Measured scan of single mutants.
Amino acid sequence: AVSDRLIGRKSVVMEAISPQNSGLVKVDGETWRATSGTVLDVGEEVSVKAIEGVKLVVEKLE
């Protein structure tokens, strides 16, 4: 599936994300709604860990 190619990809937070609120990330020039178990600020680099419905699950790059 097209979405499977996103797992493991680097992306950049475009709208802040917290455990309570989804935000936005940009992956390969496309904007996606995303969630995370931690707070992520605009501009942080993250990695796509999973896809749940139409949202990406991301975490901060170490």
Score class of each variant (00 low, 15 high):
51 I>D: 02
43 G>W: 04
16 A>L: 09
32 W>K: 00
5 R>W: 10
22 S>N: 10
20 Q>G: 14
56 L>F: 03
49 K>L: 13
45 E>R: 09
7 I>Y: 04
6 L>N: 01
53 G>Y: 05
54 V>M: 14
10 K>T: 12
56 L>E: 00
55 K>Q: 15
34 A>Q: 03
4 D>F: 09
19 P>H: 05
50 A>N: 06
13 V>H: 01
10 K>F: 09
4 D>L: 13
62 E>I: 12
45 E>N: 08
7 I>A: 03
47 S>G: 07
50 A>S: 10
41 D>G: 12
37 G>T: 14
17 I>A: 03
20 Q>D: 11
57 V>E: 04
10 K>A: 07
54 V>L: 14
1 A>S: 13
3 S>R: 12
2 V>H: 12
38 T>W: 10
15 E>P: 00
28 D>C: 15
41 D>Q: 13
31 T>Y: 14
40 L>R: 00
49 K>V: 15
9 R>E: 05
61 L>Q: 08
12 V>W: 08
26 K>Y: 14
25 V>I: 08
44 E>N: 05
7 I>S: 03
18 S>T: 12
32 W>A: 00
30 E>C: 13
29 G>P: 02
37 G>R: 12
48 V>C: 03
52 E>Q: 11
2 V>I: 13
12 V>C: 11
41 D>C: 14
10 K>N: 08
8 G>T: 04
61 L>H: 08
9 R>L: 10
20 Q>R: 10
50 A>F: 07
8 G>A: 03
46 V>P: 02
27 V>S: 03
1 A>V: 11
56 L>V: 06
1 A>W: 13
28 D>I: 05
49 K>S: 08
30 E>M: 10
44 E>M: 11
41 D>A: 13
53 G>D: 06
55 K>L: 15
24 L>H: 05
55 K>W: 15
15 E>G: 06
29 G>L: 05
24 L>W: 12
34 A>F: 02
58 V>C: 03
12 V>K: 06
36 S>L: 03
13 V>Q: 01
44 E>R: 04
58 V>P: 00
38 T>L: 08
43 G>M: 03
15 E>Y: 08
35 T>V: 14
46 V>N: 00
57 V>W: 09
2 V>G: 12
42 V>R: 06
47 S>I: 15
18 S>F: 07
1 A>I: 12
10 K>G: 06
57 V>H: 07
21 N>K: 15
29 G>T: 06
27 V>E: 00
12 V>H: 05
24 L>V: 10
29 G>Q: 07
33 R>E: 14
45 E>D: 06
6 L>E: 00
23 G>F: 04
15 E>A: 11
14 M>E: 06
42 V>S: 04
46 V>Y: 01
45 E>A: 09
5 R>F: 09
1 A>D: 11
28 D>S: 06
8 G>W: 02
2 V>W: 14
53 G>T: 03
5 R>D: 08
9 R>V: 06
53 G>S: 04
26 K>T: 10
59 E>L: 06
13 V>P: 00
29 G>W: 05
57 V>N: 04
30 E>L: 09
55 K>S: 15
52 E>R: 10
10 K>W: 10
34 A>M: 00
15 E>H: 07
5 R>L: 09
13 V>Y: 02
1 A>K: 12
22 S>V: 13
17 I>L: 04
15 E>T: 11
21 N>P: 02
53 G>H: 05
27 V>W: 03
51 I>C: 05
53 G>E: 04
29 G>F: 05
54 V>Y: 14
62 E>L: 12
25 V>A: 03
35 T>N: 06
5 R>A: 09
57 V>I: 10
3 S>K: 10
61 L>C: 10
55 K>D: 08
11 S>G: 15
37 G>H: 14
41 D>I: 11
9 R>M: 14
61 L>A: 09
46 V>D: 01
2 V>C: 13
2 V>P: 15
42 V>H: 02
45 E>Q: 10
6 L>W: 07
28 D>K: 03
53 G>K: 03
27 V>L: 11
44 E>W: 09
56 L>H: 02
48 V>S: 01
37 G>V: 11
20 Q>C: 14
35 T>Q: 06
17 I>T: 04
4 D>C: 15
42 V>K: 07
15 E>V: 12
26 K>I: 14
46 V>L: 01
12 V>F: 09
4 D>E: 13
58 V>E: 01
7 I>H: 04
50 A>Y: 08
52 E>L: 12
38 T>Q: 15
59 E>F: 07
19 P>Q: 05
44 E>C: 09
7 I>C: 08
33 R>C: 13
11 S>M: 12
23 G>A: 02
29 G>H: 07
4 D>H: 15
46 V>A: 15
61 L>S: 08
29 G>N: 09
4 D>T: 13
60 K>W: 04
57 V>M: 06
49 K>C: 12
16 A>R: 15
24 L>T: 10
56 L>R: 01
24 L>Y: 11
46 V>W: 02
57 V>F: 09
5 R>G: 08
32 W>L: 04
26 K>L: 15
61 L>K: 07
8 G>K: 04
45 E>C: 15
24 L>F: 10
7 I>M: 07
35 T>K: 08
37 G>S: 15
43 G>A: 03
9 R>P: 03
31 T>G: 02
40 L>Q: 05
48 V>T: 02
11 S>E: 02
8 G>P: 03
33 R>V: 15
18 S>K: 06
31 T>M: 13
53 G>F: 04
38 T>G: 09
45 E>Y: 13
15 E>N: 06
14 M>K: 05
31 T>R: 07
5 R>M: 08
45 E>W: 15
9 R>W: 07
38 T>P: 00
58 V>A: 01
56 L>Y: 03
35 T>F: 07
51 I>L: 07
62 E>M: 12
61 L>W: 13
10 K>M: 12
38 T>H: 12
22 S>P: 14
36 S>D: 02
37 G>I: 11
45 E>H: 11
22 S>T: 13
36 S>M: 02
25 V>M: 03
47 S>K: 14
3 S>V: 11
53 G>P: 03
44 E>D: 10
40 L>E: 02
51 I>W: 07
27 V>A: 04
9 R>C: 10
2 V>K: 11
16 A>C: 11
44 E>A: 09
34 A>K: 02
60 K>Y: 05
3 S>D: 09
24 L>S: 10
14 M>W: 09
32 W>E: 00
60 K>C: 04
49 K>A: 08
35 T>S: 09
33 R>H: 11
36 S>K: 00
62 E>D: 11
12 V>N: 03
58 V>M: 02
23 G>Y: 10
44 E>I: 08
17 I>S: 01
12 V>A: 02
50 A>M: 07
39 V>P: 11
